[in-house]
Protein backbone atom coordinates (compact mmCIF):
# COMPACT_ATOMS: atom_id res chain seq x y z
CA UNK A 1 0.00 0.00 0.00
CA UNK A 2 1.50 3.34 -1.02
CA UNK A 3 1.16 6.42 1.03
CA UNK A 4 -0.40 9.40 -0.67
CA UNK A 5 0.70 12.66 0.89
CA UNK A 6 -2.18 14.58 2.32
CA UNK A 7 -2.58 17.81 0.41
CA UNK A 8 -4.32 20.80 1.83
CA UNK A 9 -5.80 23.57 -0.25
CA UNK A 10 -2.95 25.70 0.89
CA UNK A 11 -0.25 23.36 -0.33
CA UNK A 12 -2.01 23.12 -3.69
CA UNK A 13 -1.77 26.84 -4.07
CA UNK A 14 -5.49 27.44 -3.83
CA UNK A 15 -5.10 29.69 -0.87
CA UNK A 16 -2.33 32.15 -0.37
CA UNK A 17 -0.09 31.03 2.46
CA UNK A 18 -0.52 33.77 4.96
CA UNK A 19 2.72 33.10 6.79
CA UNK A 20 4.80 33.81 3.68
CA UNK A 21 2.86 36.81 2.40
CA UNK A 22 4.66 39.35 4.50
CA UNK A 23 8.12 38.12 3.59
CA UNK A 24 7.17 38.02 -0.09
CA UNK A 25 5.84 41.56 0.14
CA UNK A 26 9.00 42.65 1.88
CA UNK A 27 11.07 41.03 -0.82
CA UNK A 28 9.05 42.65 -3.59
CA UNK A 29 9.23 46.06 -1.93
CA UNK A 30 12.95 45.71 -1.52
CA UNK A 31 13.37 44.76 -5.18
CA UNK A 32 11.22 47.70 -6.26
CA UNK A 33 13.24 50.01 -4.10
CA UNK A 34 16.51 48.75 -5.53
CA UNK A 35 15.26 49.00 -9.10
CA UNK A 36 13.88 52.50 -8.59
CA UNK A 37 17.06 53.59 -6.89
CA UNK A 38 19.15 52.18 -9.68
CA UNK A 39 17.25 53.46 -12.68
CA UNK A 40 16.35 56.85 -11.27
CA UNK A 41 19.97 57.84 -10.97
CA UNK A 42 21.25 59.15 -14.25
CA UNK A 43 24.64 59.75 -12.73
CA UNK A 44 27.80 60.03 -14.74
CA UNK A 45 29.67 57.89 -12.27
CA UNK A 46 27.37 55.11 -11.04
CA UNK A 47 27.27 54.76 -7.30
CA UNK A 48 28.60 51.23 -7.15
CA UNK A 49 30.67 51.98 -4.12
CA UNK A 50 28.12 53.87 -2.16
CA UNK A 51 26.81 52.35 0.99
CA UNK A 52 23.08 51.79 0.90
CA UNK A 53 21.40 50.49 3.97
CA UNK A 54 17.96 48.95 3.51
CA UNK A 55 15.07 51.02 4.70
CA UNK A 56 17.02 54.23 4.72
CA UNK A 57 16.42 57.06 2.37
CA UNK A 58 19.09 58.82 0.41
CA UNK A 59 19.09 62.51 -0.41
CA UNK A 60 19.30 63.44 -4.07
CA UNK A 61 22.62 65.01 -5.01
CA UNK A 62 24.34 66.95 -7.76
CA UNK A 63 28.09 67.18 -8.07
CA UNK A 64 30.28 69.39 -10.24
CA UNK A 65 33.99 70.00 -10.37
CA UNK A 66 36.24 72.74 -11.63
CA UNK A 67 40.03 72.93 -11.70
CA UNK A 68 40.37 73.53 -7.99
CA UNK A 69 37.03 72.79 -6.39
CA UNK A 70 34.34 70.13 -6.14
CA UNK A 71 30.81 71.21 -5.27
CA UNK A 72 28.13 68.87 -4.01
CA UNK A 73 24.52 69.82 -3.48
CA UNK A 74 21.97 67.69 -1.67
CA UNK A 75 18.21 68.06 -1.23
CA UNK A 76 17.48 67.91 2.50
CA UNK A 77 14.07 69.51 2.89
CA UNK A 78 12.73 69.97 6.38
CA UNK A 79 15.91 69.14 8.20
CA UNK A 80 17.34 71.23 10.98
CA UNK A 81 20.86 72.21 9.83
CA UNK A 82 22.07 71.23 13.31
CA UNK A 83 20.99 67.66 12.57
CA UNK A 84 23.16 67.38 9.45
CA UNK A 85 26.64 65.94 9.70
CA UNK A 86 29.13 66.47 6.88
CA UNK A 87 32.40 64.56 7.05
CA UNK A 88 35.18 64.35 4.52
CA UNK A 89 37.98 61.89 4.07
CA UNK A 90 40.40 62.25 1.19
CA UNK A 91 38.20 60.88 -1.53
CA UNK A 92 34.84 60.44 0.15
CA UNK A 93 32.19 62.83 1.33
CA UNK A 94 29.63 61.53 3.81
CA UNK A 95 26.41 63.44 4.41
CA UNK A 96 24.40 62.00 7.26
CA UNK A 97 21.86 63.09 9.80
CA UNK A 98 18.34 62.66 10.91
CA UNK A 99 15.10 64.06 9.65
CA UNK A 100 12.53 64.60 12.34
CA UNK A 101 8.99 64.38 11.20
CA UNK A 102 6.69 67.28 11.85
CA UNK A 103 3.92 64.85 12.70
CA UNK A 104 4.43 65.37 16.39
CA UNK A 105 3.68 69.05 16.11
CA UNK A 106 0.33 68.43 14.45
CA UNK A 107 -0.97 65.54 16.47
CA UNK A 108 -1.84 61.99 15.67
CA UNK A 109 -4.48 62.59 13.03
CA UNK A 110 -2.24 61.60 10.11
CA UNK A 111 -4.06 60.27 7.14
CA UNK A 112 -1.40 60.23 4.46
CA UNK A 113 2.34 60.06 4.72
CA UNK A 114 4.87 60.43 1.90
CA UNK A 115 7.85 62.29 3.27
CA UNK A 116 10.97 60.54 4.45
CA UNK A 117 11.94 60.66 8.06
CA UNK A 118 14.52 59.10 10.29
CA UNK A 119 18.22 58.69 9.79
CA UNK A 120 20.00 58.98 6.48
CA UNK A 121 23.58 58.58 5.42
CA UNK A 122 25.03 58.93 1.99
CA UNK A 123 28.67 58.33 1.18
CA UNK A 124 29.69 59.96 -2.07
CA UNK A 125 32.93 58.95 -3.78
CA UNK A 126 34.76 62.06 -4.95
CA UNK A 127 36.43 62.21 -8.36
CA UNK A 128 39.66 63.51 -6.79
CA UNK A 129 41.20 63.74 -3.35
CA UNK A 130 40.31 66.86 -1.42
CA UNK A 131 41.80 68.78 1.45
CA UNK A 132 39.68 67.83 4.49
CA UNK A 133 40.60 71.08 6.21
CA UNK A 134 39.09 73.20 3.44
CA UNK A 135 35.44 72.25 3.43
CA UNK A 136 32.53 74.65 3.66
CA UNK A 137 28.90 73.59 4.00
CA UNK A 138 25.91 75.87 3.60
CA UNK A 139 22.22 75.12 4.13
CA UNK A 140 19.51 77.24 2.58
CA UNK A 141 15.86 76.50 1.75
CA UNK A 142 16.24 72.78 2.25
CA UNK A 143 19.31 72.51 0.05
CA UNK A 144 22.76 71.69 1.40
CA UNK A 145 25.75 72.87 -0.64
CA UNK A 146 29.24 71.60 0.19
CA UNK A 147 32.29 73.26 -1.30
CA UNK A 148 35.45 71.17 -1.30
CA UNK A 149 38.95 72.19 -2.33
CA UNK A 150 40.98 69.69 -4.27
CA UNK A 151 44.15 68.53 -2.62
CA UNK A 152 47.11 70.12 -4.45
CA UNK A 153 49.16 66.96 -4.17
CA UNK A 154 46.63 64.96 -6.11
CA UNK A 155 46.04 67.51 -8.86
CA UNK A 156 48.60 65.95 -11.14
CA UNK A 157 50.69 63.09 -10.01
CA UNK A 158 53.49 62.40 -12.37
CA UNK A 159 54.33 58.74 -12.60
CA UNK A 160 57.88 58.07 -13.66
CA UNK A 161 58.29 55.34 -16.21
CA UNK A 162 61.33 53.24 -15.65
CA UNK A 163 62.90 51.73 -18.69
CA UNK A 164 64.69 48.47 -18.50
CA UNK A 165 68.33 49.02 -19.21
Amino acid sequence: MSLIPFRTKRSLGMEPASFSTSSLTDFRNEMNRLFEGFFNRPSVAPGWFETIEPGRWLPTIDMAESDETIRVRADLPGIDPNDVDVSVSEDRLVISGEKKTEAESVGNGWTHRESHSGGFSRAIPLPEAVDPSKVAAHYDKGVLTVNLTKSPTSASRKVPVITAS
Partner: peptide, 13 residues
Protein backbone atom coordinates in the same frame (compact mmCIF):
# COMPACT_ATOMS: atom_id res chain seq x y z
CA UNK B 1 17.67 76.98 -12.30
CA UNK B 2 20.48 75.91 -10.03
CA UNK B 3 23.30 74.42 -11.99
CA UNK B 4 26.53 74.14 -10.08
CA UNK B 5 29.52 75.94 -11.56
CA UNK B 6 32.03 73.66 -13.23
CA UNK B 7 31.75 70.37 -15.05
CA UNK B 8 28.91 68.14 -13.91
CA UNK B 9 30.17 64.93 -12.36
CA UNK B 10 26.82 63.71 -11.11
CA UNK B 11 23.37 65.04 -11.86
CA UNK B 12 20.39 63.49 -10.12
CA UNK B 13 17.82 66.18 -10.40
Amino acid sequence: ARSLPGTAVRREY
